[in-house]
């Protein structure tokens, strides 16, 4: 029994039954298939995270966000006072997170590619793009670069899904994806 020592002193030499060997083989091959799927998605799949990350001082990151916002602001988001920024396709775009907002609001063109920089000014935050359901962790001191290609137009929310204190549940930002005019 499992609670007594093995009956056979040399239990390593016992033969296996066919059922066990088959199941071990199936499980092992399935493991290789899953591993291979993950690797090959980097070559054939369209949804992969880049490994592009830089160390950056939060204030320096803030300045880059400000510069982009000043240059490309088109309006304000409703009555929130948050600027809506429409940077040119292909450019570097920035969104910062801080207690408790995503800033600024971005307006992107459908089917265009952008280099999205994410970082935090204070604590960790969770970039959760809804209803797409793309979720990325945002750290202070690190600039994570995602090359994104929004392929459906509409209004998207950025919900914070990393707990960041008492106002966490009020932290919502926006990304507009519009058809090319």
């Amino acid at each position: 029994m499992a609670i007594t020592p093995p009956q056979n002193r040399l239990w390593w030499k016992e033969p296996l039954s066919g059922v066990e060997i088959t199941w071990i083989g199936v499980a092992f091959i399935w493991g290789l298939v899953m591993f291979g799927t993950m690797v090959s998605w980097h070559f054939v799949g369209k949804q992969n995270l880049s490994n592009e990350t830089y160390r950056i001082d939060p204030n320096a990151f803030g300045e880059k966000v400000e510069a982009m916002t000043e240059r490309y602001q088109v309006r304000e988001e409703g009555d929130t006072g948050v600027p809506v920024v429409r940077p040119p396709p292909g450019s570097d775009i920035y969104m910062l997170s801080r207690l408790w907002e995503w800033w600024p609001v971005l307006e992107l063109e459908k089917d265009q590619t952008y280099r999205l920089h994410l970082s935090s000014m204070d604590w960790q935050h969770g970039f959760s793009l809804q209803p797409q359901n793309i979720n990325v962790q945002v750290h202070p001191g690190y600039d994570m670069v995602l090359t994104i290609t929004p392929d459906k137009s509409g209004e998207y929310a950025v919900v914070c899904n990393e707990f960041c204190g008492i106002g966490h549940h009020t932290m919502v930002g926006k990304i507009h994806v519009v058809d090319k005019k």
């Binding site: 929130t80 959760s128 359901n133 919900v159 914070c160 899904n161 707990f163 549940h169």
Partner: peptide, 17 residues
């Protein structure tokens, strides 16, 4: 469906956006 964990109010009643 995308609902965040560790989140007090998934209705976002107090959120600006």
């Amino acid at each position: 469906l995308g609902v965040a964990r560790r989140h007090w109010d998934i209705g976002f009643a107090d959120a600006a956006m």
